[in-house]
Nucleic acid binder design. Structure first.
Length: 569
RNA sequence: CGGGGUGUAGCUCAGCCUGGUAGAGCACUACGUUCGGGACGUAGGAGUCGCAGGUUCAAAUCCUGUCACCCCGACCA
């Protein structure tokens, strides 16, 4: 492409609504423009990268034996009613009626449609296993879309669905997808990690997320420093402590703690460590009652784990002040397990404490020197807290560190969740109906573009990984309009690169060199060749990789060969 | 949905408190000078001041309503 024919200009200033660096750079470089909250136009420069990402995904899915198809973005409500998700899926599901007053949804995912196709087209176990995928727009009416295309409402997703005759085949299909995903993100040049995950609203048992590692990531990931254990913080398990609990050494004592409500205030007032205090969180129960969740003062409650507990409302909700008062007679800040009448869950670490401090269920009062078994029934402890850096790995090897990541892929073994609900079966060897096993596998194609920028940028702009750069090479002629020699050389190079099948951008604009340099860096094109009379006189061109800070001379003899060698070292 | 904030030129923002001819920088157009790291000068085009109502002789400015957007939280792949 000739830059002079590309009408979209770059921005020096950062648009005010862009918070994260990928969003800022995508706007400044002219990759995207916002149409409405969570809705983005992909401009030609951005679309080039998006298409490259899409193509890598497509190639690796095909290599893994998956079959591409295309389903409508609009889906009839009947399928969602049949699967049960019409009522389960919240307002995130965009619903609307057509002119005949029939209900439809804009698909946030396609399990229902693909299951419908599968039950109609697949009749025999001999047709299994099979994996269908598509790369297509999804719509999820996010409460708060943000960070540009990172969390948009309409976005491009690769979604694949596999069908199997048994659980073993599903596990094998899942493994194939795991390998394909690993190849996809490796080819894209991204630093990533596969982590254990929660099934969320899609459901299913076994599930892993692929995260691009970036400090700005929305998700926290617990990673073991000794083996390959990695998990989303939502599901990262804490190990029960092996050492025996210390014996009680203090008597229970009720102490006045006026206005000390937080752990920080209480521990400061009583001069005890936060880790020696207990935090009692009262949440809504599933029966209209309340449940107390007890964790150590220096720990954080994990909502995903907690809401799976028997008797706890899901999604997790903190109980209101009135219900707390009705259940405990006190207010938040002074709650404790001692004297609490309702259902009680105690985290492993809290259950391991001796002589601890807790609220007295009475305003401005706490207990100290409290001990399980002696003052309270021995609790059956559960895992309801977030992992913290330094915690032992649940595998028993190494300790956990917390990293941040951007979720770009998620694979699930669904089992028979949808196929049973929608009666998707084939005939087995004995001619009996066999409910198929399903897996589903998603990749956020648009999100990958933003994630790649989050991970690869500097003060001057984007630094595209080779495989997904909009152009591989940018030619920057100095005085293109004035110097015949420069123009001839640049035009010849442009022809040669195009003929060689290398994506090349010729910056033939009548602009000052500084403008062209700045734009080439903002756009993040990996390889830059500067053509100027100064070095041409010596028979040279100038080469600089986007990651380098200094240019170097390159011989003018075979520039295509020179670059090709860099592309495929 | 709770809390906070912002809507003035394509972009970034000033002006609002204290009502009286709508501004700057960037971008854009023309001409000239410049030309290896986001040039300079001169001239110019571009805004129903988010929208509606009210107060007033007079509203970007004060009041009411409304819409949109952003941030934090909860929620979510």
């Amino acid at each position: 492409m000739r830059f002079s024919q590309y009408p979209i200009s770059t921005l020096k200033e950062v648009p005010g609504d862009a918070e994260v660096v990928s969003h800022q750079l995508m706007l400044r470089a002219g990759l995207i423009r916002r149409l409405a909250a969570g809705l983005y136009v992909w401009l030609p420069m951005g679309l080039r990268t998006l298409k490259k990402v899409e193509q890598i995904v497509r190639e690796e899915m095909n290599r893994a034996g998956a079959l591409e198809l295309c389903m409508p973005t609009i889906q009839p409500a009947e399928l969602w009613i049949e699967s049960g998700r019409w009522s389960k899926y919240g307002p995130e599901l965009l619903r609307f009626k057509d002119r005949h007053d029939r209900d439809f949804v804009y698909g946030p995912t396609h399990e229902e449609v693909i299951t419908d196709i599968a039950r109609r087209e697949l009749r025999s176990y001999k047709q299994l296993p099979v994996n269908f995928y598509q790369i297509q727009s999804k719509f999820r009416d996010e409460i708060r879309p943000r960070f540009g295309v990172m969390r948009a409402r309409e976005f491009l997703m690769k979604d694949a669905y596999s069908f199997h005759a048994d659980a073993a085949s599903l596990a094998e299909g899942y493994r194939l997808m795991f390998d394909a995903y690993t190849r996809i993100f490796t080819r894209m040049g991204l630093k990533f990690r596969a982590v254990q995950a929660d099934g969320g609203s899609i459901g299913g048992d076994t599930s892993q997320e692929f995260h691009v590692l970036a400090d700005s990531g929305e998700d926290a990931i617990a990673i073991s420093d000794a083996d390959d254990y990695a998990s989303n913080l939502e599901t990262a398990a804490t190990a029960a402590l092996a050492t025996p609990r210390a014996a009680p050494s203090e008597p229970v004592e009720k102490v006045a703690t006026p206005n000390a409500r937080t752990i920080a205030e209480v521990s400061a007032l009583l001069a005890v460590d936060a880790a020696q205090c207990i935090k009692t969180l009262v949440v809504d129960g599933s029966e209209g009652d309340v449940v107390a969740l007890v964790i150590r003062g220096d720990h954080d409650l994990n909502a995903v784990k907690s809401q799976k507990l028997e008797g706890v409302a899901s999604p997790l909700r903190m109980a209101g002040a009135e219900r707390i008062r009705a259940a405990t007679g006190a207010e938040a800040g002074f709650l404790g397990p001692l004297g609490f009448k309702g259902k009680l869950y105690v985290d492993h670490a809290a259950a391991h404490l001796a002589d601890f401090v807790c609220g007295a269920n009475e305003k401005d009062m706490h207990y100290r020197g409290v001990n399980w078994r002696r003052d309270l029934p021995e609790p059956q402890s559960v895992d309801i807290r977030n992992v913290q850096p330094g915690d032992p790995s649940p595998t028993g090897r190494g300790t956990l560190q917390i990293a941040r990541g951007i979720e770009v892929g998620h694979i699930f073994q669904l089992g028979q969740l949808y196929s049973a609900a929608m009666n998707a079966s084939v005939l087995d060897e004995e001619g009996k109906a066999l409910t198929m096993f399903m897996g589903c596998y998603g990749i956020g194609v648009t999100r990958i573009v933003a994630a790649a920028i989050e991970q690869n940028h500097d003060a001057n702009g984007i630094i595209w990984p080779e495989a997904i750069a909009p152009f591989q090479v940018v030619l920057v002629p100095i005085n293109y309009q004035k110097s015949a020699q420069v123009q001839e050389t640049a035009d010849a190079l442009y022809r040669d690169f195009n003929a060689a099948g290398i994506d090349v951008l010729l910056d033939d604009r009548d602009a000052r060199p500084g403008v062209k340099f700045a734009d080439s860096e903002l756009l993040g094109i990996p390889h830059r060749i500067v053509i100027g009379e100064r070095s041409l006189k010596a028979g040279n061109l100038e080469y600089r990789h986007r990651r380098e800070t200094e240019s170097r001379e390159m011989p003018a003899a075979d520039p295509v060969g020179y670059i090709r060698h860099k592309l495929n070292p």
